[in-house]
Design a binder for these strands. Structure first.
Length: 309
DNA sequence: ACCCAGGACTGAT
DNA sequence: ATCAGTCATGGG
């Protein structure tokens, strides 16, 4: 079926990349719909529009329909003063090592709705599986706007989807969470646009009213969609690296204790510290050389509201 | 077969 | 408020 989209003008942009590393940024577990071409260029979506991006020297180049300089800058966080972020970091040899591993890693500002769906889908899933779920949702419920190009379905569309059809997208027990979340958004029970206007603590509370959204998923949405780089999501990897490097592998240290430590230790831009650490321990085989894998204490089910981050 | 995955929800204390 | 069990599915 051919596209019913009006022909949008193709735009070709070149902007200062400020040292962005697309490979690190787009494979660091914050986005799940970009694909790497054989030539190293990346195909994906910015604000719901398909595009192709790559780096050329110090330039970031982007091609796609109706792209704007402002949209690309915002999406890739090129307006974030990384100098200031780095200057705010504590003197910490572990964080230094994580930074040095991928200094061009950047935190994206993605669409809240798709980010919400991705991280509802993420619980107890590996990153490659989240990518597959995103792909399946697009093909099952999105609009085809080109060859092998499917938009991400909006909340109203998913709110009409039979749960059996959602389960076919490998969502498992997350299917009912996603379905309920879609109805909450489509009905206006939770307004994702309003979340953007709230202070981070209140924004997190609002997001946690959504089915399937606990503290960790809410922090991922705040960090990867709303640009709240004070958010500090603690998943099994971050919990593992914090426990090993800062708590001597003590199994009694709770996730909440680590959150308090992280809020104080990593400073106002701790979301970036978190992302450097996460990417480093997952991708660098030499990270945590002496680190035996300690079993991770399960996080408490309580929805913590007392602290920020 | 076994363990793990960018966890959240439910029900029992 | 905290804790253990449960929830599906695919990778290694």
């Amino acid at each position: 079926m051919k596209s019913l989209e009006p022909e949008l003008p193709q735009v070709s942009l070149s902007l200062l990349g400020h040292g962005i590393d697309l490979d690190a940024t787009l494979t660091s577990g914050q986005t799940f719909s970009w694909k790497r071409n054989a030539d190293g260029r990346w195909r994906g979506w910015i604000d719901g529009r398909p595009c192709l991006v790559w780096t050329q020297g110090d330039a970031l180049r982007a091609v796609g329909p109706s792209l704007t300089h402002a949209a690309v800058t915002r999406y890739f966080g090129l307006d974030v003063p990384m100098r200031e972020v780095f200057a705010s970091f504590p003197s910490d040899p572990w964080l230094d090592r994580a930074r040095a591993f991928a200094p061009g890693l950047r935190i994206l500002r993605q669409e809240p709705w798709e980010t919400l769906c991705n991280f509802i889908s993420s619980s107890l899933k590996q990153i490659v599986q989240i990518q597959q779920i995103n792909h399946d949702l697009r093909h099952a419920f999105g609009r085809q706007i080109g060859e092998e190009l499917y938009s991400f379905p909006d909340a109203a569309r998913l709110a009409l989807a039979p749960e059996s059809q959602l389960r076919a997208c490998r969502l498992g027990f997350r299917a009912k969470h996603l379905f309920t979340a879609a109805r909450q958004i489509a009905s206006g029970e939770v307004l994702l646009e309003r979340v953007a206007t709230l202070p981070t603590v209140e924004a997190r509370e609002e997001l946690m009213r959504i089915r399937g959204v606990g503290a960790k998923v809410a922090n991922c949405i705040l960090l990867f969609a709303y640009g709240r780089i004070e958010a500090f999501p603690i998943d099994v990897w971050v919990e593992r690296v914090l426990r090993r490097l800062y708590f001597n592998d003590r199994p009694s240290v709770t996730t909440e204790r680590m959150r308090i430590f992280a809020d104080r230790h990593f400073g106002p831009y701790r979301g970036y510290a978190q992302q450097f650490l996460f990417h480093w321990i997952r991708k660098d085989p030499k990270a945590l050389p002496e680190g035996r894998k300690v079993p991770v204490k399960k996080a408490s089910a309580a929805r913590v509201r007392a602290t920020s981050g």
